[in-house]
């Protein structure tokens, strides 16, 4: 269901610092907004975003309803060895989304 867009370089020089940008399609419903009938729309947000490089955690972010709809996150990572960067979003209503990108280090 969820659509994900990840922007990371395919190759990097050893020791280079690369930027990883990730965007996920998600309403980030705050739980504070009234709907059309004046009833509060229940909260539905992404609570946590984590990134691992070859299964070692390199970055995580705990989100709140103050993060915009379709959450965008950008962060940096040191390219130490070739491998897979795994991005994972978890949140309300049992949401778990995973995306992998491979980065070759030369």
């Amino acid at each position: 269901m969820a659509n994900v867009l990840v922007n990371a370089p395919k190759t990097a020089k050893r020791g280079a610092v690369v930027e990883i940008k990730a965007l996920i399609l998600h309403p980030m419903e705050t739980g504070f907004r009234p709907g059309t009938m004046g009833k509060i729309i229940p909260r539905n947000i992404i609570e946590r975003f984590t990134a691992t490089w070859n299964d070692a955690e390199i970055f995580s972010m705990d989100m709140s309803p103050a993060i915009s709809a379709n959450p965008f996150v950008s962060f940096f990572a040191m390219a130490a060895e070739s491998g897979t960067v795994r991005l994972r979003w978890t949140g309300d209503e049992g949401l778990v989304v995973e995306e992998r990108v491979a980065i070759a280090v030369e």
Binding site: I67, F72, F75, A77
Partner: peptide, 23 residues
């Protein structure tokens, strides 16, 4: 609510910069 986000970093990031979009 007063919190916006909390990000965890380490030496593996190489650069302490985090970007996002907020309400």
């Amino acid at each position: 609510q007063p919190n916006v986000f909390s990000a965890r970093l380490s030496a593996r990031n190489g650069k302490a910069t985090v970007g996002t979009r907020i309400k």
